[in-house]
């Protein structure tokens, strides 16, 4: 269907900014209208990019969790780390049918929780495992993943939020 959902939202945002916002004088309502304008641009970007972004995030998370699992499996003193990542490391079966955004969100969240817990477990084990081969590399891999993840999120945020927010 054309216009697409994101094209319609962009049209709403432009109309809102050009015709409605200037007519809103009451201070609280005007402040909220500025926020709404920014959010409409954010929603347009999410409609367009959030699906592919989540697919990339899930693949990235799986890769870094596999690295952590390999390190923890080969290193003494890393049982707590292994316990955190192993359950999340199995791939979800896909039959080729459509996967909705909410399902992708759930999968990314499940993997994200595993990474969050694994980082805490690595910090906890650091006094005994920080000098082991592979520890520094796995910590760097985690940081590189976090950088890529923030870059993906930034693509939905930075271009959308411009001008006054409230």
């Amino acid at each position: 269907m054309r216009p697409s959902a994101e094209e319609i939202v962009r049209s709403i945002a432009a109309t809102f900014d050009e015709y409605l916002l200037p007519e809103i004088d009451e201070p609280f309502a005007h402040s909220l209208a500025l926020t709404v304008s920014n959010l409409l641009r954010h929603v347009a970007l999410r409609l367009e990019q959030e699906g592919p972004m989540l697919v990339a995030e899930i693949a990235d998370l799986r890769a870094v969790l596999a690295e952590i699992q390999a390190f923890a499996g080969a290193s003494p003193g890393c049982d707590a780390v292994l316990a955190r990542v192993a359950p999340a490391c199995g791939a979800r079966p896909r039959d080729g049918s459509y996967v909705g955004i909410s399902e992708l969100h759930d999968e990314a969240a499940e993997l994200g929780w595993a990474l969050q817990h694994a980082i805490h477990a690595l910090d906890g084990a650091a006094p005994t495992v920080a000098t082991l081969d592979g520890y520094a590399e796995v910590r760097q891999s985690i940081r590189r993943h976090l950088r890529r993840s923030l870059e993906r999120e930034g693509a939905l945020i930075v271009p959308a939020f411009t001008g006054e927010r409230r």
Binding site: L115, Q116, D123, A126, L146
Partner: peptide, 12 residues
């Protein structure tokens, strides 16, 4: 209600 691995990294 959602994970923040970057917060875990920064907490250390």
């Amino acid at each position: 209600i959602e994970p923040f691995p970057v917060v875990a990294e920064a907490a250390g």
